[in-house]
């Protein structure tokens, strides 16, 4: 009975930390004690109802938590991994009752689909792809893109799931012949896909035909940029990048995110906005998430910072809680909720 108790999350006290516009509404405790690596929120159908659930990933176990009343959560499924640890959760939009995970040590070695038996009584996992995988992203229309292989034999593969998460089709995209670091969909353009590469290029594909449309150099000022969001407006491509390697300057502070605009026809680009830390705050981008016009980042200082991309400035700071640095942050799919995680497995849910 005591085990069940530890798997139901606490509701925090009212006097919890409330910095800026962030309000703590819920906390999930990790009873396993192993190192926590990622969190995400997704719809899962339970007893005929689609519920907004939370997925937590520790090194060797991924768990699904369903909402109870009054911001409490109950763990209902857990998938266990014996040999290779979990690196990240990969959500596949438009697929219900299926989540993917990337497993590996420093680099991704496997991507697995996690699902349940048709009666909902037992967990299942299916190996989707394995090898030397560099980047992976779930796409709209039940698709998953991954890039991998050796230097001479790299592949960009699209997998399409059936509605029930079952049988799948495979298709290949033309490879840009340089290592792909991250993928990003172009909002509102379901057949366009972007990638950032190790050579500071942004590449763009046509997902329908598999064509590589353009390779666009964005300059050498920021290495290893991660693309978080892209949208097309008035014939131009707007891209939100984060800069793990950016150095701060006295004038501008430390740029954590940047908005650039690219003309895909000419491949010319210019910077539109730098999203810097407020004065007096130190740290570089460690990891983060962008949803709509809000960007959240965990900094090397252990603090989480939030920017309103339209206003152009940092709107909230969340310092470490209980002497524990933050290690990852995700926006939840509903409302403006922020899921903030610590290495020891505690997940805090904030209303923004």
């Amino acid at each position: 009975h005591s085990t069940e108790q530890t798997e139901i999350a606490d509701v925090p006290a009212c006097d919890s930390l409330n910095p800026g516009t962030l309000q703590l509404v819920s906390k999930l405790k990790n009873p396993s004690g192993s190192c926590s690596v990622d969190v995400s929120a997704m719809l899962w159908e339970i007893a005929g109802f689609k519920e907004q659930c939370i997925i937590t990933a520790c090194e060797y176990v991924v768990s699904l938590w369903k909402p109870l009343d009054t911001w409490q959560w109950e763990k209902i499924y857990s998938w266990h991994f014996a040999e290779v640890p979990v690196l990240q959760i990969v959500l596949v939009p438009d697929v219900c009752n299926l989540v993917c995970v990337a497993l590996g040590n420093l680099e991704i070695r496997e991507i697995r689909a996690l699902l349940c038996s048709p009666d909902g009584k037992s967990e299942k996992q299916v190996l989707l792809t394995s090898g030397n995988i560099k980047a992976v992203l779930g796409l709209t229309k039940r698709r998953l893109v991954s890039s991998g292989g050796t230097l001479c034999d790299q592949q960009v593969e699209i997998m399409t799931f059936a509605e029930d998460g079952g049988s799948k089709e495979k298709q290949f995209l033309m490879h840009p012949e340089e290592t792909i670091l991250t993928f990003a969909e172009v909002q509102g353009m379901q057949e366009a896909l972007l990638g950032t590469t190790i050579m500071n290029n942004i590449v763009i594909w046509n997902l329908k035909t598999g064509q590589l449309l353009k390779k666009m150099h964005i300059g050498d000022s920021y290495q290893a940029s991660v693309c978080h969001k892209a949208y097309s407006e008035m014939g131009l491509l707007f891209v939100v990048l984060s800069h793990p390697c950016a150095k701060g300057s006295k004038l501008l502070g430390s740029p954590v995110f940047q908005l650039i605009v690219i003309n895909p026809k000419t491949t010319l680009s210019v910077g539109v906005m730098l999203y810097c830390l407020p004065q007096g705050q130190a740290g570089r981008f460690l990891e983060g998430d962008v949803k709509d016009h809000f960007a959240a980042a965990v900094l090397t200082s252990g603090t989480i910072a939030i920017w309103d991309l339209l206003l152009g400035h940092c709107t909230a700071l969340l310092p470490p809680v209980s002497d524990q640095n933050w290690s990852f942050v995700k926006w939840s799919g509903v409302d403006s909720h922020l899921l903030a995680g610590q290495k020891d497995g505690n997940i805090f849910v904030y209303r923004y």
């Binding site: 064509q211 131009l236 690219i262 026809k265 000419t266 910077g271």
Partner: peptide, 23 residues
């Protein structure tokens, strides 16, 4: 930023690049 720095802009860039790129 100045739009002129980006060269001629096309609203149908995706279709145009798709017709120009190798299959």
């Amino acid at each position: 930023c100045n739009k002129a720095d980006l060269g001629p802009i096309s609203l149908n860039w995706f279709e145009e690049l798709s017709s120009e790129a190798p299959p």
